[in-house]
Design a protein around this nucleic acid. Sequence first.
DNA 1: TCATCATATTATAATATTATTATATGTGAC
DNA 2: GTCACATATAATAATATTATAATATGATGA
Lengths: 112, 112
Amino acid sequence: MNDLRETAEMLKVVSHPARLEILQKLETDVLCVSDIEDILGVGQSNVSQHLSLLRRAGLVDCYMDGKLRCYFLKDPRALDIIGLIKKKYDGPLPSPACCPVRPGAKSSRSAD
Amino acid sequence: MNDLRETAEMLKVVSHPARLEILQKLETDVLCVSDIEDILGVGQSNVSQHLSLLRRAGLVDCYMDGKLRCYFLKDPRALDIIGLIKKKYDGPLPSPACCPVRPGAKSSRSAD
DNA sequence: TCATCATATTATAATATTATTATATGTGAC
DNA sequence: GTCACATATAATAATATTATAATATGATGA
C-alpha cells in the first residue's frame, strides 16, 4: 500500500504550474531547455531545476543533440496528468444517498 | 490558459499521502473526523487541517450528523486522482520517433 | 444552565520549496 | 588546446508546508 506515498510524490512533482506546462508542451513536442525557457518565460537555471525534478521523478528523459538536451515524456502517468488540465467535468459528484442532509449544512436538523 | 494554475493548485492539495488516503477512503465511505483519525493514525488536529485544505479546494464537503461532521467526495476530479493510485501502466512511453537516440545517452554519438 | 464530546483554529518550530544569482560542467567549432 | 554556447549545479534568501501542542468553538444531553 505504498502506492499512496509513491503517487503522492509524483503528484507533488507535477503540482507546479511551470512543470505542468512543461509536461503539456512535451506531449506534442520534443523540446530543449532554451525552447522551454522561451515558452515559459522563466530563467534558464529555474527551467533546469524544474527539468531536474521531472527527470529524477522519471516523468521525462532527454537525449543529446549536439549541444542541446532534448527532453521528452517518459512516464505514461504524465499523460493522465496532462489530461486533467483540459478535461471537462460536469458539476459536483452526487451527494451520498444514505445519510442525506444538505451538504455544508450547519446542522442536520436546522430549518429548511 | 489558467487551467494550468488551477490544476496545479488542485494537484498540490492532493499531493500528500494522508490527503490522498482520505480521498481514497471517501470514495466508498462517508467518514467523520474521528473515523479518519483512526484510519490514518494521525492526530485529530492534523486530520482537521488536512480536511480543511481538501474542503477549501472544493474536493470534499461535509454535513452534520449530530455532533459528527461527515465528509464525502464532492469534486469529480478526485475520482481521477484516486484512479491514479491503483492504475497499472506498462512500461515507459515510446521514445520520440523523429530524433531517435538512446534516451539518457551522454551524447548522440557515443559508442554503443 | 453546565458538562462533555467532536471538531476547528491558532501558534509555533522544523522542514521543504521556490526563484534568483553566481558559478561550474560539458559539447562542438576552430 | 581555447572559445562560445547550452545546460547544470550550488548557494541563498524568501516563502510555504508540515506536525504538534494548546486552545477555542459548537452541538448534544442532563
